[in-house]
Design a protein around this nucleic acid. Structure first.
Lengths: 202, 202
DNA sequence: GTCTATAGATAGATAGAC
DNA sequence: GTCTATCTATCTATAGAC
């Protein structure tokens, strides 16, 4: 076990700076130069670690996906009740937010608007969506919901809604209602209730 | 009444081209040059009509806001039942989409990620959110819902969710469930039902 | 109102030394 | 692995003519 250096290596500082700037100001609008300045790294060093800006963007998205997945894993490991496990999506977002402070909504959806389809970071956007779809289907199935596909679609809708509301709130204060995450969870729980007692409702 | 020219004037062609490119590829990623080429307009002409790219972006957002508002007005004018009027939000989105074909979700939310807070187009992002909040509150109130604030927050959540699902579907096919707009409307209608019969549910 | 040609700023990326 | 200095392409914007 090696001792952690006082200053993280350049690659690490680059990813941290990229994560902050790309998320806060958008990917296209953030120049490589801004990332370098914030990281305190020289251009040559960056290009020694990453093939170019595109590769840095892809690494940023990959790291974000990984952290989100681990957070969700962590929350899932704490839940036993099948319905709680299905609703863990919203608890995981809350935990991720308290940790990483993503006050501007979903980084992957934002990136989806900015990146062309052939961008090297694009697979991570697909991975994010696939993870959500597959897990929600499995958890809905395990919770005994008759139509896991329908359940996954409903929870995904509420999840996307909550994240989008964060993005909205970041630009315009004074919106109706606060804590969209809690609201989305409540709505999801109520909907799941209707599915358990009467499979044809909803 | 003047006759419409065979070729729209440069200003019009610029706004059309900007609308297509900014929406499809993102604002920051789209150069003025690309807009000029698509519009078939020279740089000098563009700068005669708009102070700069920022002003063009603001005009693009303003036009989009106006068209969306008019579409919603139009749908509202066709509805008499108070609950139908509240749900008209989703019908208006459907009509707007069939007309303008916004297959990538909400342009204002996408712009919110890209534009800095002091950008001249920013007021339009706020106008979009304010329009949604105020109208939904009024319509919920007129529909006799006891807590219009709560209703507006719920419908806004579902609206944002549906639009985000479109953005997601544009990058990753094969998601659970289709037609997020119809799903959002169904969920909204069901929720409104619980509010009318029992004000404390939900 | 519209064009051609070009200036000026900034972005992404590289060379070569330590 | 990391730096300073620089190159080149691109982008926004302007000058001056028709």
């Amino acid at each position: 076990m090696t001792r952690a250096p006082a200053t993280p290596p350049a690659r690490e500082r680059l990813l941290t700076a990229a994560g902050e700037l790309f998320y806060a100001s958008g990917i296209a609008a953030t120049g490589v130069d801004a990332v370098l300045t914030r990281a305190g790294v020289s251009p040559a060093t960056m290009y020694a670690h990453f093939a170019g800006k595109d590769a840095l963007v892809a690494a940023y998205l990959g790291r974000r996906h990984e952290r989100w997945r681990l957070t969700w894993d962590e929350v899932l490991a704490e839940r036993d009740d099948p319905v709680d496990r299905l609703l863990s999506l919203f608890d995981a977002v809350a935990r991720y937010r308290s940790r990483e402070g993503n006050g501007r909504g979903c980084a992957f959806l934002a990136a989806a608007t900015e990146l062309p389809a052939d961008h090297p970071g694009h697979p991570w956007l697909e991975a994010d969506t696939r993870l959500l779809g597959e897990r929600l289907r499995e958890l809905a199935s395990a919770a005994g919901l008759l139509d896991p596909e329908e359940a996954a679609a409903t929870l995904l809708l509420l999840y996307d809604g909550a994240l989008n509301r964060f993005a909205r709130a970041a630009t315009t204060p004074g919106l109706p209602g606060d804590d969209p995450l809690a609201r989305a969870r409540r709505l999801a729980a109520a909907w799941i209730g209707t599915q358990l007692s009467d499979p044809r409702a909803g």
